[in-house]
């Protein structure tokens, strides 16, 4: 296990397109870091740069103490799990697991020992002599994991490994990956666009958008104190409501009504409030016109409009909703962002 240090890493393609810039991330030995962001944000490119599959045009990447910018993928001592698993279709599971060890000239009995160990950890012993196409999606996923762990690398890199699985299997495999990583203590970098996967797996999250880092922090830090409106809208489901608001006379005004006391300089702000923090309150100052209701079983999502902005409110009561609902908010649950830049306003 090793630390991975990214120092101001960037990537500009030959055509001049800038894919990534200013990526500085310190990953501690044994840490599980998840890179999360919408498609096209550069998260996979960054992972592939760490793996050595893409060139680095700016900054330095270190694995352990060594700068690896120009080191071949084979010599970086990393293992990668691909989205489509990338199992060698013409080899048996055993050969798939042994391939990387064989290429490195590991002695025969050592290969056998490690393959047997990995097979036991991942419970793929019965399939060792099958070809990948004879396995189910979940089994293939395990073989892909096995291929990574037999190498006993300094770091695991995961490129959306669960996105080809069905929803139920994804949840099981998610916790298996987490337990396995804890058990082996191997530094891991995991790429996903799924914020639930990111929240549940990560020691620390790196939220990316449009080739830049929006925020780095533990899942709870990111959830509780999103640094920008992008993070606020991206992390958490259903997404946080982002509403234009004004501060004036020590009050926060939303859609023309004073909704909470607020002691800061006046002016326009963006109010972020999570759907579960919008409380139904017959005497509340906020009026939401109801558009439609989504039933989740344990709760309902009320979709509607506050002023001119769409908003969502989570409620647990089953009372039939009125066309207009009154809501109130607790000032402690309000996230305030700069109306222009989208950056979080400190002390809010």
């Amino acid at each position: 296990m090793a630390a991975i240090t990214l120092d101001n890493v960037g990537k500009t393609y030959a055509g001049g397109t800038r894919a990534l810039s200013g990526m500085s991330i310190d990953i501690a030995p044994g840490e599980f870091v998840v890179l999360v962001g919408p498609s096209g944000c550069g998260k996979s490119t960054l992972l592939r740069m760490i793996a050595g599959l893409e060139t680095v045009t700016e900054g330095t990447i270190r694995i352990g103490e060594r700068v690896v910018n120009t080191v071949e993928p084979a010599d970086r001592n990393i293992a990668m799990v691909f989205q489509n698993y990338a199992l060698y279709p013409h080899m048996t599971v055993r050969q798939n697991l042994a391939y990387g060890l064989k290429n490195r000239g590991t002695p025969r009995d050592e290969i056998d020992r490690r393959v047997a160990e990995a097979a036991q950890i991942l419970e793929i012993g019965p399939y060792l002599d099958r070809k990948p196409r004879q396995l189910s999606g979940g089994q293939r996923q395990r073989v892909a994991m096995g291929r990574a762990i037999v190498r006993e690398p300094a770091a695991f890199l995961f490129d959306e490994p669960l996105s080809n699985l069905d929803a139920k299997l994804r949840v099981t495999m998610r916790s298996e990956i987490r337990q396995l990583q804890r058990r082996l203590g191997t530094t891991s970098v995991y790429v996903t666009h799924d914020q639930v996967e990111a929240m549940t797996l990560a020691d620390r999250l790196v939220v990316l958008n449009a080739g830049r880092i929006e925020q780095i922090g533990t899942p709870l830090q990111v959830y509780r104190h999103p640094a920008t409106t992008f993070v606020a809208g991206f992390i958490g489901a259903p997404a946080m409501n982002l509403l234009p608001a004004q501060i004036a006379d020590g009050q926060l005004h939303l859609a023309g009504a004073a909704v909470a006391p607020m002691t800061r300089a006046g002016g326009p702000v963006t109010l972020g409030i999570r759907p579960e923090d919008l409380r139904r309150d017959p005497a509340g100052p906020i009026r939401m016109r109801l558009r439609h209701v989504e039933e989740l079983g344990h709760a309902r999502l009320l979709h509607g409009q506050i002023g001119d902005s769409a908003a969502v409110c989570t409620v647990t009561d089953t009372a039939p909703p009125d066309p207009e609902i009154r809501l109130s908010i607790d000032p402690g649950q309000c996230h305030l962002f700069d109306a222009q830049t989208g950056a979080r306003l400190t002390g809010a």
Partner: peptide
């Protein structure tokens, strides 16, 4: 698939191998 050759590259196989 390109990922197969990438996986092999990470698995320590040079271009000829």
């Amino acid at each position: 698939p390109g990922s197969l050759r990438e996986a092999a590259a990470i698995d320590g196989a040079g271009p000829a191998r």
